[in-house]
């Protein structure tokens, strides 16, 4: 299963990081290929992404379900299920304070293509996850730091 973990030090206090990450609308457009998302309720939302799989670009719809929202541990965990593509996965954001003005933000994402050709799609997706996670984490960091400035 293709998986990526990306850590970033954000130059901001943990509360600021956490309050930013908690508002999905703020960072959703930072996800590469983001087209739109629609919140169904507190936990569930439908995401539309236009993403590359190998050389191909496809529009993917998926349901994201927040399984754990822990304000104390500053952790959000979610599950992903493909709507128009056979895929499952999940992810986590964790914020850990490093100092008064430094917070480590970790983003973990894993995704597993299903169906007969799943193994092939996974190979194609694998090299793409890291740059996607990195780009998103860096944009979040920049946005938070800009808010702080």
């Amino acid at each position: 299963m293709p998986q990526v973990e990306y850590k970033n030090i954000v130059n901001a206090p943990m509360d600021a990081v956490w309050s930013y990450v908690s508002v999905i609308d703020k960072w959703a457009p930072f996800l590469k290929g983001y087209v739109k998302h629609e919140e169904l309720n507190d936990k569930e939302s439908i995401w539309t992404l236009k993403g590359d799989v190998g050389v191909l670009c496809r529009v993917v719809e998926m349901k994201v379900n927040i399984t754990d929202w822990d304000d104390d541990a500053k952790k959000v965990a979610f599950e992903i299920e493909g709507i128009n593509e056979k895929a499952t996965g999940g992810g986590t954001f964790i914020a850990v304070s490093q100092s008064d003005n430094e917070t480590e933000l970790t983003f973990i994402l894993e995704i597993n293509a299903g169906g007969m050709i799943g193994p092939v799609v996974n190979v194609l997706m694998k090299p793409m996850l890291k740059p996607v996670a990195a780009e998103m984490a860096n944009k979040i960091k920049d946005a938070i730091e800009k808010e702080q400035a």
Partner: peptide, 12 residues
């Protein structure tokens, strides 16, 4: 269904 997609993935 006979196609060995695991083998193909490995080759890729």
């Amino acid at each position: 269904q006979n196609v060995d997609f695991e083998l193909i993935a490995q080759r890729m």
